[in-house]
Design a binder for these strands. Structure first.
Lengths: 338, 338
DNA sequence: CTGTTAGCGCATTCAG
DNA sequence: CTGAATGCGCTAACAG
């Protein structure tokens, strides 16, 4: 079905049909004839041909590292809210935490095309920078700092520091075991480097040093956190706090504690902490100390920023840093077993 | 940047560039000239113009009810795996559990366009059926039965029945409190109607009847499950099993138990069960009785089915029903508090 | 108000 | 092997 065929059936020109579709001048009589034909044929105009002409898709693409994540869904919820209120739709592409797929999907969106792209960033490689510099469509990066695009990121360093202070105080209160930290790759400047550096700084400000023997690396997955922590527990028996770079990893840490306790006689009180304020985790264990980032807010702001560039051609580059809130800092509910 | 400009800069015809891009006949010499120009200009061909010509996007659209879900991410993981191995890319659209947005995104994909659509179904309305009947591109429905499209669904009834039997046996073992069921809208034939009907049938086969006073409705969210269960607990004090239609709701149920126990003196042993085998839940509470559906498998199969239709024009309609596995049926680990 | 015309960027005939 | 010419489905002037 093409606009021409509809025009033929309705006995009008294709331009008339186009006007009907887009609200241009058209007589009631023809309007009715066209309506009927479209009704009967179930015709839908080809968005792609329209976009080829108009250069306007009313569509934005969002590239995310994974789909099964509360943080990310909060960001996309914010984005979606703004977008739909302003007549745009949102398409998602998930990269399974593979930076090379990010590039691939960025390019797909660029020339598919969409009007703009929001990238929920993980690792910013040279390839990323190259893309950002030359992109034909506006891009906003969320969750990572970059000078090559408008970006909205969180105070991961500050959050890490707050968590470090909390860990130090819990540690002193509990009478001094060791503090462990389960991090993620430092290639991820925000969740990897900044949180860990902040955490160390927070500890230090309370006079505690993080022992590198108690630091492990994990992927962004529960099972990976589980493995890392189980191995750690089997090696060290004087841990009282395990701080994890994400709540997903923290969930694995708690599971590892369960496993470990089942097969050992010694009963240990270990506090697990995370970052991200995952609701499911809160629900299940009664809540662990964690950091609430304004993910939904960053979604909202990023979409607004993007639309400003798209619609008003806003050219001034913007960097925006969003704060955080410490959750369950009272640590009353901080023990996985009550 | 257009193919014409590239042709101009390289001193060849646009057809030559097109051939270069698509692997047609071209001399080494021109190939090199074109390569260089493209390199320098950072030119990317417009996918949309190509699709307008070729009618082939190598792209499939997946419509999902929400993004923050382990079940759904397992399905999309399966889809993505097949797709990328066969040279396709995947775009996602999330509807926030709003059936009307489903239609909207189905239409977007239809004429955007993509080569095929996979719909992870919730409620199939008359509008859905109308769309499926007239769709210009092949559609596969996952998670719901429908006769208007190829579909892959799970044995929700059987799973419910198995869970009902388990609940009955746990109930008898624990010495007979009441069994509660937290369901979802019956408009969702699979997660709503089939699971609940199966659950009742399972109980019945063990001689137990589900008391409607102990049945509540929840949305597909943790907080909604929390509210439903808290209200239930305040009303009834003889519950020993709470079966929930999804693990997400079960997480809310467990949280409600925590809340309730904190403010009450009576200590009750309540088993919470779910459907879906969420890993995070398993991690955190040590695991509740739940149902493992082959979500990844249904993703894989659905993508294969879709590609068969797209590439080989397979015309024979297919319905596929996938089984399930009961997890933690031993109930050793079934209590939220050990 | 309306139809005719001319592309959007590309791939594909068809003659060379 | 190559370029000129045509049209995918649609919208935006333009002249009625």
């Amino acid at each position: 079905m093409t606009i021409k065929e509809i025009a033929g059936l309705a006995g009008v020109s294709s331009a008339a049909v186009s006007r009907y579709l887009n609200g241009g001048y058209i007589s009631e009589e023809k309007k009715e004839r066209i309506r009927k034909v479209i009704e009967e044929t179930g015709y839908h105009p080809s968005a792609q041909a329209r976009i080829l002409r108009t250069k306007r898709a009313c569509l934005v693409g969002v590239v995310v590292p994974k789909i099964n994540s509360e943080s990310i869904s909060r960001v996309t919820a914010g984005i979606g809210q703004v977008l739909s209120s302003r007549g745009y739709q949102m398409l998602l592409a998930s990269t399974d935490n593979r930076p090379e797929k990010e590039i691939q999907y960025l390019k797909l969106f660029e020339n598919y095309p969409v009007d703009g792209i929001i990238l929920i960033g993980t690792v910013i490689t040279a390839e990323h920078r190259k893309f950002l510099k030359n992109a034909k469509v506006p891009v906003v990066v969320v969750g990572q700092y970059t000078k090559y695009a408008n970006c909205i990121y969180h105070d991961d360093y500050g959050a890490g520091k707050a968590m470090g202070k909390l860990a130090a105080s819990l540690n002193q209160r509990s009478g001094g075991g060791h503090i462990a930290y389960i991090g993620v790759t430092r290639d991820d400047k925000a969740a990897g480097a900044a949180r860990e550096d902040g955490f160390r700084a927070g500890l230090k400000s309370a006079g505690v040093e993080l022992d590198d023997d108690y630091v492990r690396l994990s992927e962004f997955r529960t099972d990976s956190g589980y493995n890392a922590v189980l191995a750690l527990l089997e090696e060290k028996d004087d841990i009282d706090i395990i701080s994890c770079a994400t709540d997903t990893i923290a969930a694995g840490a708690i599971e590892a504690l369960h496993t470990y306790e089942k097969r050992s006689t010694a009963h240990r009180r270990v506090t697990v902490t995370g970052f991200g304020d995952n609701q499911l985790l809160k629900a299940v264990s009664g809540g662990i100390p964690t950091i609430h980032f304004g993910y939904k807010t960053s979604g909202i702001r990023s979409a607004e920023l993007l639309l400003d560039v798209i619609e008003r051609g806003e050219k001034i580059p913007i960097e925006m840093k969003l704060g955080f809130r410490l959750v369950h800092g009272d640590a009353e509910t901080s023990l996985p077993h009550s």
